[in-house]
């Protein structure tokens, strides 16, 4: 019973409520952006972007502490998004090139942090976030950045979907894919920035990829994908936070909260995958039986 009560009571604590707020806002945006990432097959590029933002986070953090972190991440994210769009557009690239460029940027970030004295603990916080100690200003920053990303993608959503399904059609209809790509990449980068203080640089990818993938498993209807993804992400954030809280209060086990939420997301994905496979199997069996009946008659 305790597990269920802590689903509600855990969030009476202000820091838990803040964490939940951050995650809910992130989930909303992830629902929108993540589905587009999935439809366009941009998982690899998103991974590159998260790595590319890291040196900005690191340099900003070394120069200006927690506030500098945000500024540095913003600059790096916008830069990386523009560079990435140009690289992909000029088609001089393969996935190997993307991996090399962004891992190199990540190395720069690590080197910057490694020059600091208290290196290991800080690296931990930058990579995996500190969901439970986000400050009210950070909550505000996250909300604002998420809103910008939401507006960017929301205002071009129809065009984005058009481009995802029919590039030539979009071109013929007079849309400019370069602008659309730029908007989407900037939005992805903004999500990375917004999430970097809460869930950390390495776990952002889960927020971007998993909800979209789950939505694709759950429904075939295009416009249902977005609410399903966002709803799933919120549910996972809620359950994950409450579970982590319950484990530390009642179980005495100190779970890292960001990782717990991500693992709940992944478990949800596995459940959706199993159910989908089961349903497909049943449907296939039913079809075969009908066929057999018809032939037998």
């Amino acid at each position: 019973m305790d597990v269920f009560t802590s689903l509600i009571t855990a969030f009476d604590l202000p820091f838990m409520a803040r964490a939940l707020l951050v995650l809910v806002v992130l989930s909303l945006v992830a629902g929108l952006v993540g589905v587009l990432v999935n439809l366009r097959g941009l998982e690899f590029i998103s991974d590159g972007l998260t790595h590319a933002v890291f040196p900005g986070v690191a340099i900003g953090f070394v120069w200006g502490g927690r506030d500098g972190l945000f500024v540095g991440a913003m600059v790096a994210a916008l830069l990386a998004a523009v560079v990435l769009t140009v690289i992909v557009k000029r088609a001089v690239t393969s996935d190997a090139a993307i991996a090399i460029v962004f891992t190199a940027m990540f190395s720069v970030g690590i080197i910057v942090v490694s020059r600091e004295t208290n290196y290991v603990g800080q690296l931990d916080a930058l990579l995996f976030g500190r969901l439970l100690t986000v400050s009210p200003t950070e909550v505000n920053q996250t909300v604002v950045v998420c809103l910008i990303a939401l507006v960017l993608v929301g205002s071009t959503l129809k065009e984005q979907v058009f481009r995802a399904f029919d590039l030539e059609g979009a071109l013929a209809a007079g849309y400019r894919p370069l602008v659309l790509d730029l908007v989407l990449n900037v939005a992805i980068a903004l999500v990375v920035v917004a999430a970097s203080s809460a869930v950390g640089n390495l776990l952002v990818l889960a927020v971007l990829i998993v909800p979209g993938a789950v939505a694709r498993l759950v429904t075939n209807r295009l416009w249902l994908l977005f609410p399903v993804a966002a709803g799933f992400a919120m549910l996972a954030a809620w359950v994950g936070l409450a579970f982590g809280y319950d484990a530390s209060v009642n179980g005495g086990v100190d779970l890292p909260s960001g990782a717990t939420v991500v693992l709940v997301l992944v478990v949800g994905y596995v459940a959706a995958l199993v159910v989908r496979l089961g349903l497909d199997r049943i449907r296939a069996l039913g079809r075969r039986r009908r066929l057999v009946e018809r032939v037998g008659r």
Binding site: N38, G41, E43, F44, S46, D47, F128, L202, L203, L205, A206, I209, V210, A213, R216, L217, V253, D254, L255, P256, G258, A259, T260, V262, L263, V266, Y269, L273, R276, L277, D280
Partner: peptide, 27 residues
């Protein structure tokens, strides 16, 4: 699996790996 593909599989396992590693460390 239909509608999932290699990139999705890689992406999900990748973050799951990180999360699991951190969790084990935390435990």
């Amino acid at each position: 699996v239909k509608r999932q593909g290699n990139q999705v599989a890689s992406g999900i396992l990748l973050t799951a790996g990180f999360a699991l590693g951190v969790l084990l460390q935390g435990l």
